[in-house]
Amino acid sequence: MRLAILFTLIFLAGCSFKSDNLGAWKKETSNSFESYTKYYLEGKTRLASVSLKRALASAKSSADLRPLSKVYLGVCALHVGVLIDDKCDDFLSLDDVLDKNDSSRSYYYMIEKKFRDVRVDSLPKQYRDFVKAVKKSDFKSAKQDIKAMKNISSALIASSLIKEHLNSDDIDFLIQRTSLYGYKKAIIRWLKFLKTTSTTKKDRKIDKLLKILN
């Protein structure tokens, strides 16, 4: 019992009841975007839409536009991760008000496959080795780097960036991994992609899976 309370309260350790509202909008943006990511990949469209609206509303409550640009970029990246083309127009609409050296820009170049413009050291850590390998056209290493990614959404995004170089086993492995999280939307999208690369025998299995999932 005490352990249970302890675990709950570990989260509260070091926290105090604050009377001010400092940074609350940032937390709300971040939390809502986290919820959006989860719901989007799970295919819970309504909940994802509500979470995104909240994330955008809170991000727009400040003159600091970096969180807003990250939300736009994150949305774009998730689309890319589930194999939906997205030119990141929302992110680009903030182009003239954002710092040209902002780290988000490298991320943008990455998800748009403009690898030559990517500054590897300003990318989130999980992508650095992957991008280095892709820049050298070393797709074998890039695939290994994807397998080493702990975050499944990062693995989905990275996989989509080299999808032409993935074989059916790679895709199958990715789908199995995604299945562990119950990310239905991602599973369906990647199954459909797998269908384009697989044999007739596998096709039947994929069709059946898609039928069940839909």
Binding site: K26, F33, G74
Partner: peptide, 18 residues
């Protein structure tokens, strides 16, 4: 809910790109 979340999170929580 926001205030409960505020309690359990650090002040510098940022949007994490996926």
């Amino acid at each position: 809910i926001n205030s409960v979340n505020s309690l359990i999170q650090s002040d510098d929580k940022k949007v994490q790109l996926p």
